[in-house]
Design a protein around this nucleic acid. Structure first.
Lengths: 128, 128
DNA sequence: TTGAATAGTAACTAAATGTTACTTACAGTG
DNA sequence: CACTGTAAGTAACATTTAGTTACTATTCAA
């Protein structure tokens, strides 16, 4: 960690700024599950709990950051299709690392939370 | 991506929940730069722009999630020391992947943003 | 004993997110 | 052709989260 987790990380948290919001990876995951291309309302159904507003906002952010591409379908069936860009596909390594960490350490995190919340000394207020 | 970026990612975005806020990695980076242990006000100086409130909130979250440990120094000089836990050290692989992605693709992201913002068709409102 | 440093908390404001309802356009059914 | 359904959103509003500024309590050093 000492080498990687250095000053440049602190100045460049770009990827976290792209994926750190509540829905981005979930939406990307849904697109991924459908061969890298999916339409608006299909995504709204794929991602449980997301509102149309949040989905629209999220898709626009992803589009603006070059991770997905928006295409209006002008065939007989109208619609809008969102698909990965080449840049979007490069997310594989970091997302894989995120997933690997999660698989290994989720239990430890939950255990730490339980311990913290259960202790008598000043729970100050972190369990929000 | 097809294998990794699947349903389980969508249900388990644990790591992102831990580091996705504005300050967490910056604070962890500052601790890391000082041999894995650092005190409150030192961190406040290390991380430019952070307020005491934000730092306190951030440290409590990290502590609750088991990534850092809080220890009150009971020597002649009073103080509180925050240090990595074993779990905290396991962040190396995912953080390294994040950094690697950033180093490779920051320019592409910025370029995408410029293109998006500059285009004539409906900038709707994503550049917030 | 005054002043500076430590480690915060309290009260408040601003920004981000989310919710519900509405809109416009087209396509198919009776 | 009116009616219903689906698609892709937007508008106005409410809530949640994050951030700011000021303040406190304790300890040390001059």
């Amino acid at each position: 960690m000492s080498e990687h987790f250095d000053r440049s990380v602190r100045q460049e948290r770009v990827l976290l700024d792209l994926l750190g919001d509540k829905w981005s990876i979930l939406v990307l995951g849904a697109i991924c599950d459908h061969h890298g291309a999916r339409r608006f309302n299909a995504l709204a159904r794929d991602v449980p709990g997301i509102s149309q507003r949040s989905l629209a906002t999220c898709l626009r952010r992803l589009e603006r950051n070059g991770l997905i591409h928006r295409r209006v379908i002008d065939g007989p069936k109208l619609g809008t299709e969102y698909s990965f860009t080449d840049l979007g596909y490069t997310l594989d390594p970091p997302v894989t690392a995120l997933l690997a960490w999660t698989k290994l350490h989720t239990d430890a995190v939950r255990a730490a939370q339980v311990t913290y919340d259960a202790r008598e000394e000043a729970p100050r207020d972190a369990e929000a």
